[in-house]
Amino acid sequence: MPAGRLGGRVGHVTFWVAIWTLALGGLLYLLLPTLIIVVASFTAGEYITFPPQGLSLRWFTRLMALAEVRVSAWRSLIVATAATAVAVVLGVAAAFPLVRGRFAGREALNAFLMSPLILPSLVYGLAALMFVSAIGLPLSVPVLVLSHVAIIVPYVIRTTAASLALLDPHLEEAARSLGANAWKTFLRVILPNLLPGIATGAAFAFISSFDNLTVSLFLAGPRVETLPIRLFAMINFDFDPAAAAISAVLVLITFAVVLLAHWAVGLTRVIRL
């Protein structure tokens, strides 16, 4: 084999070894802490340890027995669901002019609407609290929902806008020329084709509401505790494996939502492609 070709082959192999090492290393680094806490939650012992001392579901059973945990978990689900629903309506509506509109300052508006993704949510939480108390609203579940909407709506806008940008603008013109008014064009032609983007955005939105701590800390108040706040409190007071069990539940629900979104996207893909 000529030297040049051998050298080329060595270069090729080292390239792929480097890529795979970095990729797997990165993945492990991402997942390992979460994996450890999930595994630790199944301990039979009294403390969070890794590896766990024996395996049992006793801490999950204990979670179920804790009324505050049940109530806060239920509340988190309700808040995340409601906030996601509102965010989807607002986000899908906003994506439309942001992609298709022709007006001065569209780019600036785009950047502004994306800003909560960049803005520290701690700052937003404080600002929202000041705003709410300034206008004299009592802290409540609806207030919490609306504050979550503000931080999760950019996810919906972003994924919907991406889908919309890929959608052939001629579809709308075809629908219009066939006699569909603006509403029918949107509902019958555009919306069905945006579902993958909307589902993806909704999943992101739901998850970031469901495990949000920073904004909730400011706006929850003592009466409307969410699951992440409960978890935070448990870690502060007694760091027992029940906290690990809550983490495991959060991870489980996150995965479930991601899979659900994936399934919904896949379903629409089957029809589209």
Binding site: D168, H170, L171, E173, A174, A175, S177, L178, V189, P192, N193, T268, I271, R272
Partner: peptide, 12 residues
């Protein structure tokens, strides 16, 4: 009625 180069059939 209008027909486009890339057909613009409703994919869904």
């Amino acid at each position: 009625g209008i027909v486009f180069q890339h057909y613009a059939l409703f994919p869904h």
